[in-house]
């Protein structure tokens, strides 16, 4: 698999370490009443879809950036790659945008 790194261009997937479902970016609120349950679900449960999957790849043998890769688990086709930071900022902007309305 070739991952099209947003800063470095196409790189072989073997330069990266796979770190699982991109939902791991969103840690639960540790102060919530049911924090133990939330963290159990966060850490141990997965959607594990057959099809499009957003996932974290860490460029350990490269620039050590964290990427959010959108990949099809049935075909291994990669349809989108972005820096994890950009993915988070985009999500936050979307959230606050909705909040203002």
């Amino acid at each position: 698999m070739i991952i099209n790194h947003p800063l470095l261009g196409p790189r072989d997937a073997s330069e990266f370490v796979y770190k699982g479902d991109a939902s791991l970016i969103e840690r639960p609120d540790w102060q919530a009443d049911n924090a133990a349950e939330l963290f159990h679900d966060y850490l141990y449960l997965r959607d594990n879809p057959a099809g499009e999957h957003q996932e974290l790849w860490y460029h350990e043998q490269g620039d050590r950036s964290w990427l959010v890769v959108t990949r099809n688990t049935l075909t291994h086709d990669i349809t989108n790659v972005e820096l994890a930071r950009d993915a988070v900022l985009a999500k936050q902007a979307k959230k606050s945008g909705r909040g203002e309305k």
């Binding site: 997937a13 796979y18 699982g20 479902d21 996932e55 990949r71 688990t73 049935l74 075909t75 291994h76």
Partner: peptide, 10 residues
Amino acid sequence: GYNSYAQRGN
């Protein structure tokens, strides 16, 4: 080492 249902590897 990555999620896959493809029944083939790399």
